[in-house]
């Protein structure tokens, strides 16, 4: 057996299914929930809350800032040309470039780490069911351990409204 899952229409049912799986001792990271919307009001959508995306964004920003600084402050000195009586390294205008590079760094870092941590792009897992985008909530386990496998069906079916499927 490769995977087993159930489709629910009601997020409350999905929440119950998740709890049922936990009750069986399925490890938290083996429980898969898929939905067509975030369902932030439900506990199951918060199981994976990691906050370090902000730090990556910040690091991207710092990288951009340093790049902006180097770009402006060094290239101005490579061929020093005077304009309008301004200093060769003109901090005020350079600040604008540094700012834009900082923001660009933060944005790119966010976007890239978002994609990477969300495993995008990737192939669809065997668990995936197109019914998810119809609005069903999928709760399941991928490659369950053999001893547990048989009991998973029951647990998922035990929640009202669940349509259990097994992928061989």
């Amino acid at each position: 057996m490769k995977a087993v899952y159930a489709l629910y229409t009601d997020p409350d049912a999905a929440q119950q299914a998740v709890e049922a799986l936990r009750g069986l001792g399925v490890k938290e990271r083996d429980i898969v929930v898929m939905s067509s919307e975030p369902f932030e009001e439900y506990e199951f959508s918060h199981r994976d809350k990691a906050t370090w995306l902000h730090w990556i964004a910040g690091a991207g920003g710092v990288t951009g800032m340093v790049a902006g600084y180097l770009l402006t402050f060094t290239t101005q000195q490579l061929w020093p040309l005077t304009t309008s009586g301004m200093p060769i390294v003109s901090t005020w205008p350079n600040t604008i470039i540094v700012f834009e590079m900082t923001m660009l760094g933060a944005i790119l870092a966010t976007a890239v780490s978002l994609l990477i941590t969300a495993s995008l792009p990737s192939r669809l897992s065997v668990l995936y069911d197109p019914a998810v985008t119809l609005g069903y909530i999928l709760v399941g386990v991928n490659r369950p351990d053999e001893p547990l496998a048989s009991r998973l069906d029951e647990a998922l079916a035990g929640v009202p409204g669940g349509q259990v499927k097994t992928v061989a």
């Binding site: 040309l81 005077t82 304009t83 309008s84 009586g85 301004m86 205008p93």
Partner: peptide
């Protein structure tokens, strides 16, 4: 001009002192 307003605005240093 010593502080020529035309110089700094040029993006390619075509105008400079």
């Amino acid at each position: 001009c010593g502080n020529a307003p035309c110089e700094a605005v040029c993006p390619t240093y075509a105008s400079h002192q």
